[in-house]
Amino acid sequence: MSGTLGLPEDAGPRAEALARGLLLPLVTGGELTLERPFGARLALALGQALPVVDEATRLALRTARITALRRLAPLDEVAEPQPEDWALAAALHDLLQATNPELTSPLTRDRPARLVRSVVSVTSRVPHPPTLTVALARHSLFAGIARLGRIDTTVRWWSGEERCIGAAPPARLLALPELRKVRVEAERVQVPNMATLLPDEEGAWTAALAAWLTRSPLTDVAWASRTSPRFRWSEASLALIAAPLGAALATRAVTLTAKAGAPPSGLAALSAATEELSGAPRRLAADFGARLARAVDTTPA
């Protein structure tokens, strides 16, 4: 069943669901719910199909993005998500869905790997932000990835245990708690550690996430403190800090993240990544590091 643009007929509702289930909670906070994986073809076509998100979601998303952006710059307007943004959102969706244990079965163990390859394919086709405005708009959509987490719950009883990934434990596991000596432990797993349950694909998954992050360089720099994938200077992030205004925005984004309670390792990660460079890019990154160090020193606790 295909629509007029060669897309599945449910492309519109799926785009709506992507906005409601992933983009909006990523910006405003709350629970992210995932749908069926999109795949590369649909991800790249979502924006071309001009998905019309319903008015309430569109307005809520716009307001939340402007609110977040105003912490960085005095803006009153933000562009609607562009086709590239929809593609990146679908790619992030598939990347997160790849960590879903429900996706695999003894006969379908290759599904996460296929999904990760699809994400890499999509990401490679999305260009770097051509302007600071686009970089800012993209950051307003995806900055929440630094705070995104998943609640993994481990239920232990006298004869065994079971781990529920990103889902509430079923009632049967919690029945007769006294008799079965049931213990429940919930753990918040951040994005860098979400793929640890996929030992075969963890490296590929992390590389796909790193590639995805290079498409939103402001998010990449602001979240430099992450443990995995380790921050590396990319062509896009160097282009960002090469512009004086871009460097100011990146400085503000990093200091804001630090003030929000992130470990102060962002500066160290940026410095370590600078050591890997040489020549003019290294001088550029070093200047930015020095500027950032001054800003961190002068940022009130």
Partner: peptide, 26 residues
């Protein structure tokens, strides 16, 4: 503001039916 939290739900019978690793024009 609440933290964004990922919830993973069970998928339908053919979850990968839209997934192609390369788009048509690749």
């Amino acid at each position: 503001q609440p933290l964004p939290t990922l919830r993973l739900d069970p998928l339908d019978l053919r979850p990968m039916r839209d997934v192609s690793e390369e788009p048509d024009d690749a």
